[in-house]
């Protein structure tokens, strides 16, 4: 469904990605793991058209999307949840969701407000509050709900478990399972091996802008060196 081939990306003269290749299949949850600065977020931003200096190829449903404007990429059915959440703080929760709203697509599940409020009950209570008044966990819920309002087929989740309370992390895991049940494909970036194992089918490990491992978690367990080298803190 999503195919990344030999993707490179630069910030100014600094090369951040150096030939990343990976794929996400239909209704699959894939974890992209690596330390801070390994290139996880850069990979996601490149796919989403948020970086200008990129090379290689990104195909979505067989169509080339690298270099296209980010709104056009979103309209193909790709949803993006940024790691720093990027809530519109001066807008209410409901207005935040309104910004994300897009017409339904025949090939993807449709998320109305009611459906989302069922998934994130806190947001219903706080729907008249401003984005900046929410707690970190609530903001994380809101940013996912906002992206789901666009009825995506594939969702890029950048570090969903970062910086939130353990009880919310559990809720997040349930949400990701729900997304998979609804038929979505998910690419999440993650530092936490435990969380990644809990929610995803396969994993890629990235380090210094290159993929160092790909496979199932069983394969990863069989090679403890790999997780020690690329993930241990």
């Amino acid at each position: 469904m999503l195919e990344i081939q030999d993707l490179s990306a630069w910030y100014g003269r600094a090369q951040i990605l150096n030939g990343v290749s990976m794929r996400v299949g239909q209704n699959e949850v894939v974890a992209l793991m690596g330390r801070n600065g390994a290139g996880k977020s850069t990979t996601m931003k490149s796919v989403m058209g948020l970086l200008r200096q990129t090379g290689g190829a990104v195909r979505y449903d067989g169509r080339d999307i690298l270099g296209r404007a980010s709104h056009a990429i979103c309209r193909q059915g790709l949803g993006y949840v940024p790691e720093d959440r990027r809530i519109f703080g001066e807008l209410t929760v409901e207005e935040n969701l309104e910004v994300g709203r897009r017409p339904p697509r025949p090939d993807a599940p449709e998320w109305g407000l009611d459906h989302l409020y069922a998934l994130f009950p806190n947001l219903r209570e706080r729907r008249r509050n401003l984005g900046k008044q929410l707690s970190g966990g609530e903001q994380q819920m809101l940013t996912i709900a906002r992206t789901l309002m666009g009825n995506p087929r594939l969702i890029l989740l950048d570090e969903p478990s970062e910086g939130i309370a353990p009880v919310i992390v559990e809720q997040m895991a349930r949400v990701i399972a729900e997304l998979k049940r609804e038929g979505l494909s998910v690419l999440i970036s993650e530092q936490n091996l435990h969380f990644a194992r809990l929610v995803s089918d396969r994993t890629y490990i990235i380090e210094k802008g290159q993929i160092r491992f790909e496979g199932r978690f069983d394969d990863l367990d069989a090679n403890p060196d790999i997780s020690r080298t690329y993930l241990a803190v």
């Binding site: 948020l50 404007a69 056009a72 979103c74 309209r75 990027r86 519109f88 910004v99 897009r102 666009g150």
Partner: peptide, 17 residues
Amino acid sequence: RAATQDREMVGALGINQ
């Protein structure tokens, strides 16, 4: 109003800036 705060994010949500 959303674009006044974060134009890029509005674009990533499918709005043609």
